[in-house]
Structures are given as C-alpha cells and as structure tokens.
C-alpha cells in the first residue's frame, strides 16, 4: 500500500475493514482479543504504579486506608472522564500523549524522590509546576536533538 495507490480506493473505511478482516483470518484470532490484551497490559502497568504510590504515600504514615480510598475515587473519576471524552482523546496523537505523561511522571518522580530523601521543596506541592516546566523544556530540547541528522548522514 503506497500513497500513490490512493486514487484506486473508492472507500477508505471499507478498505480498512477488509484489511482488518483479512488480518483476523491470517492471525487466526479475533482482533478484539489482541486489543483486549494490549489494553490489559497498559492497565496492569498503571495499576501497579498506583499500588506502589498508594503504599509509598500511605503505609509509612499509617494512612493506607485513606490513600486506598483516594486511589479508588481517582479510578472512578478516570473511568467517568474516559467514558465521556474517549472520542476526542483518541484523536490526540499517541506520541503527544506519551510526551505529556512523560513530563508529568518525571516531575512527580523527582518531587517524590526528593521528599523521600527529606528534601523540603520550596513552595511544597507548587514546586511541581516549575519541575514540569523544566522537564517540558528538556523534552523539547531532546526532540530538537533527535531531529538533527546524525553526523554520518551529513557526511
């Protein structure tokens, strides 16, 4: 399939469905199952992260029950928001989503690691904002570096 084949396609949606049907036959399985496994993998990873965070935040201070309840409430909220905005969210490019999540996780990671080491960040939770800004800047700088052609190609 190449861009120049586009003029031979009368109906892209129908063509895509045919390709997917053929893939199901070739793989000998329903694609629903593959999609389910991918979703399961993602949810397991995020679920484990939440469990680690709840234990880290709650266990040391005897606040495991409130932390767990907070995680459950957040889970319900995410499910609700996901159900409402899943269509517009699915149009956001995957790499943009990953970039945003990476910035947030990096900022939270440094913040919490510092707190664990006994660092009293100036501004407390507000320190997360400049951290996110710094990681965002580093991300943009990294993307600029990644876009530059390597020396071998230039030569």
């Amino acid at each position: 399939m190449a861009p120049e084949d586009g003029d031979r396609l009368a109906d892209l949606r129908g063509f895509t469905r045919d390709v997917m049907r053929q893939m199901e036959e070739d793989l000998g399985t329903r694609l629903d199952w593959v999609a389910g496994m991918m979703a399961f993998k993602g949810v397991v990873l995020e679920g484990l992260e939440v469990a680690f965070i709840v234990i880290a935040v709650g266990a040391g201070r005897g606040l495991l029950v409130p932390a767990s309840l907070g995680a459950l409430a957040a889970c319900a909220l995410v499910l609700l928001v996901g159900a409402v905005v899943h269509r517009p969210l699915s149009r956001v490019p995957e790499n943009t989503l990953k970039f945003g999540v990476g910035v947030m996780l990096s900022a939270f990671g440094v913040f919490w690691t510092g707190e664990g080491l006994g660092v009293a960040w100036p501004g407390q939770d507000l320190a997360l904002l400049p951290f996110a800004g710094l990681f965002l800047g580093a991300g943009f700088l990294g993307s600029l570096i990644a876009r530059r052609p390597s020396m071998e190609i230039v030569q």
């Binding site: 990671g109 440094v110 510092g114 660092v119 009293a120 960040w121 951290f131 990681f135 991300g139 570096i145």
Partner: peptide, 18 residues
C-alpha cells in the same frame, strides 16, 4: 543540605534525560 542535594537530583535527572 537536603535542598542542595534535591537541586542536584533535579539537575542530574534533566542531564541524564537529555
């Protein structure tokens, strides 16, 4: 000072990332 070490932690993570 923990705050100075925290600053090093932040800068170190940024440098490692880039």
């Amino acid at each position: 000072d923990p705050l100075a070490a925290g600053g090093l932690l932040l800068v170190g993570c940024l440098v490692v990332l880039i």
